[in-house]
């Protein structure tokens, strides 16, 4: 005999609840590990040409990097609040919060655009030197994750209107939120390595 499912609330066992489903966590932890290997590669190759890396880093605009960190942290906060609102069936509020998270993501993309533009106009392209190869590869790969995340957030926004009706609605919402937070998390490690490491 099964109790009627309250799908807006996560099923909880004595062992706890996996947000989304196990599959999303396999993907997220795998993606995090691939990025971690790239980060390790960056620190390793940096050691071989320390002067070049420090000199190249000095041309980066730390302010762009820090603003983008704050934008992603804020977007994550909006997603946490949006998920919370959706679980309470406060659909209109959830939609507003997801829209705000999306706009923070768009702001991140815009800052990145101006940052790339500034660098390219200075002749600092991906082929300028090894530091800039890493810079464009790491930030570009991360930006791709941001763009995918914004598409996902778009769907989260649309589906929030109807509310959480089925277990699959709940898994989609939690899985999407988990992915978006991972995008934030990766930037949190990327920012100090590229912009701040002395």
């Amino acid at each position: 005999m099964t109790a009627p499912a309250v799908v807006s609330e996560a099923p909880k066992t004595s062992n706890g609840h996996i947000p989304g489903e196990t599959g999303i966590w396999v993907f997220v932890l795998g993606d995090m590990t691939v990025f971690a290997m790239l980060f390790a590669g960056f620190v390793f190759y940096r050691a071989e040409q320390l002067g070049l890396y420090l000199e190249s880093q000095a041309a980066l605009n730390q302010t762009f990097g820090a603003i983008n960190t704050l934008l992603l942290l804020s977007s994550s906060w909006f997603v946490v609040m949006g998920t919370d609102a959706a679980r309470r069936d406060a659909r209109a509020l959830a939609q507003r919060l997801f829209a705000a998270a999306f706009l923070c993501g768009a702001g991140f993309g815009l800052v990145k655009f101006f940052e790339y533009r500034e660098k390219v106009l200075q002749g600092l392209t991906p082929v300028a030197n090894e530091f800039y190869s890493f810079y464009y590869m790491l930030t570009g790969l991360h930006l791709l994750h941001v763009l995918i995340g914004m598409i996902v957030l778009g769907f989260v926004f649309l589906r929030a209107r109807a509310g959480i009706r089925t277990a699959s609605d709940r898994m989609f919402l939690e899985g999407s939120a988990t992915y978006w937070h991972m995008v934030d998390l990766l930037w949190i490690v990327l920012f100090p390595l590229l912009y701040l490491m002395k």
Binding site: K12, T13, N15, G16, H17, I18, P19, S76, W77, V79, V80, E174, A177, T178, H181, M182, D184, L185, I188, V189, F191, P192
Partner: peptide
Amino acid sequence: SLVKVRLILFHFMEVREAPW
């Protein structure tokens, strides 16, 4: 940055409520 990562994992990504 790793302290921040842990805060994001446990509080935003709800790992604090996940299985051990």
